[in-house]
Amino acid sequence: MELFTPDIGLICWMIIPFGVVFFILAKFAWPAIIKGVDKRAAFIDESLKAAQEANDRLAGIKEESEKILVQAREEQLQILKNGADMREQMIKDAKQQAAVEADKLIEEARMAIQKEKEDAIRDVRAQVAELSINIAEKVLRKNLEKKEAQMELVNKLIDEAQKN
């Protein structure tokens, strides 16, 4: 039956075009396509790897930056603290110095006042003594017009001197 008998003519017509197709595709199509797909696969693999690496590096950078940030914050705190300390110290020093200065001033003032006072007292004393001498002179002049009065006074003074 024709259906089941291979025909030599058609076999020839099959072998030649199929052979040609096989040859051309094997030479020009399949290697190029497979190579292209392989290249793309390799490219994708590489890209994924590179992305992974970049990600890792980025994570490292992030960590580092955080570390740096923390360090910076610490330093900032330290600096602020130092500043505060220094300020306090300065204020304390200033206060101390001011107190010393003030004490000194007060002392000087007091000493000056004392001196003034002493001077004043000395003046007053001198004046009082002058006045008293004047008064006493006058009184004496009057009282010592008599001789016995003069004698009495000398005695009296001698007594007093002796007592002292």
Partner: peptide, 10 residues
């Protein structure tokens, strides 16, 4: 199609 792969496989 294959020549396209030679030009740009990506």
């Amino acid at each position: 199609l294959a020549s396209g792969y030679k030009k740009d496989p990506f």
